[in-house]
Amino acid sequence: MPNQYDKILKEILKDVIDTLIAKVIGLKIIKSTAIETKLQITNEREADYILLVEMEDGSSSLLHIEFQATNYFKMVYREMRYWIYLSEVHEIHPMQYVFYIGNVPLTMKDSISTETMNYKYNLIDMRDVDCEKFLYSDKPEEVIISILCNYQKKGVKIFVCRSKRRKR
């Protein structure tokens, strides 16, 4: 039933839309052209990591983490879609972090700003992270993370060895 009212309202107001634009919104438009109003988009996304986290202060949040190996110039739009989807589905605004692990300098934007909207996510260039945070760990998983950091600045050489087990 609500869809029927929408159709009736759109039909009634179609001849006065220009008046509303000029006299209520205040835009001085020379020409307008109607475009298709149906925005049918099939968009299935699979995030790298989405975690429900509890903070030390007792608060809860969603934590969304992505890893990106290339400079994707539309990354800010991808992350904004994730923010919208996660906020709508879980009714919690997510904290978002993208870890850039590429070899070339980072050029992706982490924000978009218009007259009516501002959006920003956290973009971390792993080449700026100190490899020593992970390099000397007793946990092999953490040592592997150090490979993603910029260890060349330190003059460090990393060797990954695989031990061969003897058959008994």
Rank of each mutant, 00 (worst) to 15 (best):
residue 105 P to A: 13
residue 162 R to M: 10
residue 59 S to D: 09
residue 124 I to A: 09
residue 75 M to K: 04
residue 64 H to S: 10
residue 70 T to I: 01
residue 29 I to Q: 02
residue 76 V to A: 11
residue 126 M to C: 02
residue 142 E to S: 11
residue 1 M to T: 02
residue 4 Q to Y: 13
residue 142 E to R: 03
residue 14 K to H: 10
residue 113 S to P: 00
residue 68 Q to H: 05
residue 88 E to D: 14
residue 161 C to P: 11
residue 44 E to D: 10
residue 142 E to D: 13
residue 123 L to M: 12
residue 69 A to W: 04
residue 15 D to G: 01
residue 113 S to A: 14
residue 119 Y to V: 05
residue 144 I to S: 10
residue 147 I to T: 15
residue 16 V to D: 12
residue 72 Y to V: 12
residue 83 W to L: 02
residue 110 D to I: 00
residue 135 L to N: 03
residue 22 A to L: 04
residue 45 R to K: 12
residue 121 Y to V: 11
residue 133 K to W: 06
residue 17 I to K: 08
residue 99 F to V: 02
residue 12 I to N: 10
residue 6 D to Y: 09
residue 78 R to L: 01
residue 129 V to Y: 08
residue 160 V to K: 11
residue 62 L to Y: 06
residue 92 I to D: 04
residue 110 D to K: 09
residue 16 V to G: 08
residue 113 S to R: 12
residue 103 N to T: 15
residue 54 E to W: 01
residue 15 D to F: 02
residue 77 Y to Q: 11
residue 91 E to Y: 05
residue 132 E to W: 07
residue 151 Y to D: 10
residue 85 Y to W: 12
residue 17 I to A: 01
residue 128 D to M: 07
residue 155 G to H: 00
residue 40 Q to P: 03
residue 50 I to S: 08
residue 80 M to H: 12
residue 158 I to P: 09
residue 25 I to M: 09
residue 150 N to G: 15
residue 15 D to I: 06
residue 15 D to Q: 05
residue 89 V to K: 15
residue 147 I to D: 03
residue 166 R to W: 01
residue 134 F to P: 07
residue 45 R to G: 07
residue 8 I to L: 10
residue 41 I to R: 07
residue 144 I to N: 03
residue 165 R to L: 13
residue 121 Y to K: 12
